[in-house]
């Protein structure tokens, strides 16, 4: 039923994601205030900002969960994301990891990945779906990447917090999206796990565009990438972590209040 839009990797777009003047308000509270942001194809971008800066709302807007009151959101140059819903946008090639790790807890790790497999997500296809060898191979490959090969038949609910984070990232990889939106991937992780996660994300960013939202400055530093600071729903500063950290306005926002 769902026609999957073509999402071949064609890097000639000027931008993979383009937000211009996006505003969202809830009962008078402006969650996003004329936010503009451009992500280049193949780029990894870290987004930081205090609580309530609008990070999650921004992701909601990009993935079709929240409609902006005004502003433009384009994917790959000309696909207007404000016109589509979550499932359609997911099939366009945008994957999203939630702030709180969200996996299918009563199903096995293997099945979690299987459900996220790229392909036709229509009802009849799903009803009569059978796993091909290529699919199994792909799942094994991702299991390897997210270091859960040994846990393939565990129920996802029995994984540790960090493993659930990885499983969710793995599910994103199964979708093979062009753009990954990753919300707080290292929250609740040990230092070792955090390090492994930054390795994982760097590896992923080699052939995907990635947007990472995180509070952990060490982690951001390890990612070694361009940083955007959000504050009260709009961009406060942009640049390398060092530049941003020395920006007086950023210091005021984080410390001054």
């Amino acid at each position: 039923m769902t026609s999957r839009p073509a999402s071949e990797k064609t890097p000639e777009f000027a931008s993979i994601l383009y937000l211009d003047g996006v505003s969202v308000s809830f009962d008078g509270f402006k969650a996003l205030n004329s936010l503009s942001l451009v992500i280049e194809p193949g780029e990894m971008r870290a987004i930081i900002g205090p609580n309530g800066a609008g990070k999650t709302t921004m992701m909601d807007v990009i993935t079709g969960k929240t409609r902006p009151d005004e502003g433009e959101v384009f994917f790959k140059g000309n696909i207007d994301l404000t016109k589509h819903d979550e499932a359609y946008i997911a099939n366009l090639g945008i994957g999203r990891k939630f702030q709180k790790p969200t996996v299918f807890e009563s199903q096995t790790v293997f099945n979690n990945l299987e459900l996220s497999l790229k392909g036709d997500k229509g009802i009849m296809t799903t009803l009569f779906a059978a796993l091909g060898d290529a699919d199994v191979a792909r799942i094994m490959e991702v299991l390897e990447i997210i270091r859960l090969s040994e846990r393939a038949n565990w129920l996802a609910g029995n994984l540790s917090h960090g493993q659930k984070q990885w499983l969710e990232i793995g599910m994103l990889l199964m979708q093979d999206p062009d753009l990954l939106l990753v919300d707080e991937p290292v929250a609740g992780m040990t230092d070792a796990e955090t390090e492994q996660t930054s390795d994982l994300l760097r590896k992923i960013s080699e052939n995907h565009s990635v947007v990472v939202v995180e509070h952990d400055m060490e982690f951001i530093r390890a990612l070694d990438t361009k940083v955007t600071v959000l504050h009260e729903g709009s961009v406060l500063a942009e640049g390398s972590l060092d530049v941003v950290q020395n920006n007086q306005r950023v210091i005021d926002v984080y410390l001054g209040r």
Partner: peptide, 8 residues
């Protein structure tokens, strides 16, 4: 919503 964001 995870299911939705997985494209179903």
């Amino acid at each position: 919503s995870r299911t939705r964001f997985s494209g179903y």
